[in-house]
């Protein structure tokens, strides 16, 4: 005769067995093999050379060297497998690496899925040379610092302008003739690897070995790694670009720019847009 006690015991055992099975299945991806992070602004560094390809078309071989830092955004989950993965946005990396996709037929700048394995990547802090791109709500904004007085009106948004930026992997790039709608696939007029970065309050110093021509850099030495320096100071000076709606007397928005003093010249960064 089976007692109630025996049934209860059997039931409990069954429950434990089931639970163990469930835990074991999900534990595969919570295990030490894969990265976990809830950040939406996650920075990773490659621990070995990665050979991958462009997303969807998969017709361009892409090589990312060991030691490359990039903004992975957030870790995705494979639809069928549930495995954690990342995509790399090549347009946030230096020109020698992104050139291969930007000059390709499809111009697809995202890599295909790469499993977020601990053997491939390690989590790093956002590099300090990208601090100027951070918004108050911890999202990364447009990293371009534009040459000029303030944001152009919306009807001139397609005008070509000069700008510089620092790539995720630490390269200072200067562009001539890009529009505000650039998504990073433009070829820089000149670029150099960042050797050192120093931030003191609102002033940032970018040090390179070779000059980035076009940028108001100061030559500080003829030898060693730190020969050229770009000084960038964020000011407390805000400027407004009022954009009117189709009916002239009504406004549609106002773009606020923050002035940056770069090597003695006026540059600006978009701050916020105020809508009525």
């Amino acid at each position: 005769m089976i007692t109630t006690k025996q049934i209860k015991k059997a039931g409990l055992a069954l429950a434990v067995a089931l639970f163990a099975t469930i835990s074991f299945t999900t534990a595969t991806f919570a295990s030490s093999q894969y990265l976990t992070s809830k950040s939406h602004n996650l920075f990773l560094e490659t621990k070995q050379t990665i050979h991958t390809t462009n997303a969807y078309f998969k017709d361009i071989p892409i090589t990312i060297p060991k030691g490359t830092v990039f903004n992975a955004g957030s870790i995705g989950k494979g639809v069928t497998t549930g495995k954690p993965y990342v995509n790399i946005n090549m347009d946030n990396l230096r020109w020698p690496l992104r050139k291969v996709v930007d000059e390709s037929k499809h111009n697809q700048q995202m890599t295909t899925y790469i499993w977020a394995k601990k053997s491939l990547f390690k989590i790093v802090k956002q590099p300090n040379y990208l601090a100027y791109t951070k918004t108050p709500d911890n999202y990364t904004q447009d990293p371009y610092v534009w040459e000029g007085n303030k944001a152009l009106p919306s009807d001139q948004f397609l005008s070509k302008q000069n700008a510089f930026r620092v790539t995720d992997d630490g390269y200072l790039e200067y562009f001539t003739g890009i529009t505000r709608y650039t998504d990073g696939d433009a070829k820089p007029a000149d670029y150099a690897k960042l050797q050192k970065f120093v931030k003191k309050g609102n002033t940032s110093y970018f040090y390179t070995k070779t000059e980035v021509s076009g940028l108001p850099m100061t030559k500080i030495s003829s030898t060693g790694k730190y020969r050229y320096r770009l000084k960038m100071t964020k000011t407390n000076h805000y400027l407004a670009t009022v954009n009117h709606s189709k009916v002239q007397k009504y406004g549609s928005n106002t773009v606020i720019s923050v002035r940056y003093n770069v090597g003695g010249k006026d540059f600006y960064v978009g701050s916020m847009t105020v809508y009525p």
Binding site: Y238, L239, G251, N253, T254, I256, V274, Y275, P276
Partner: peptide, 15 residues
């Protein structure tokens, strides 16, 4: 659905 934005004191110096 109309509105306006007023910059004070002016466009070149926003307070």
């Amino acid at each position: 659905s109309y509105g306006n934005v007023t910059v004070i004191p002016n466009d070149e110096d926003v307070q």
